[in-house]
Amino acid sequence: MDDYAKYSLLVAAALSTLAAITGGFQAGALVFILAIATAIALPYRMARARAELAEAELPYFLRTLASEVDAGIPYIQALEDACENSPELGKAVKKAIRMYRRGIPISKALESAGEEFDSESVRRALVHVAALYHMGKEAQTLRHIADAMLSVHRAESKRFSAKLALYSLFFLGIAALLPALFTMYTAIGSLFLTERMDATTAFLISAILLPLLSVASLAFMYYQMPAFLRR
């Protein structure tokens, strides 16, 4: 069993024990299932997020590389320059450059850099980057790939801007209307209805749960944004 699985099980067990002590067996079981599901999904989600970032950086990486190679800047130097503004992709490519300096062929090194990402487009683009070194082909191919990716980004960007208004309404609903409704509910409940909530629970809902929901809705909005729009 690797370390990640071991620690995930430990954390899930600790959280579910805590939940079982405070909320009973059912709460403990529910927390255990949720913790395990999160532990399983997390690595996939993180790998996908990394691939999305690399895909977002790819067009600029390719264009910088193409311009510098055309200008006569040595290939490895141009590759290093292209890494400067591409933190995620740059990390993998810099590793490939280090491998190349240790004597591994650049195509193999770049191939292994591509394998780090869960993205077919990154892998394909890095194959073309290696071909530029080996065959001395025109950097124009890299520009075509970059242009194709940019036009996809533009289309996605338009689609996202159509959703923006909806997200803002959604946030206002959660951040303003929900707490207002809750405040009215407690006031009416305590005055006219038999249903009364104890003061501590009401305080915790209002001071912790509701603001957390607002923060979660902002986080949701942020992560709905295509990776190339985030910086």
Partner: peptide, 16 residues
């Protein structure tokens, strides 16, 4: 109860 909810509102506003 109402006092507790009202006193939590500035905290909510601050966090948001």
């Amino acid at each position: 109860t109402v006092l507790a909810v009202l006193s939590a509102i500035p905290i909510n506003i601050g966090i948001v």
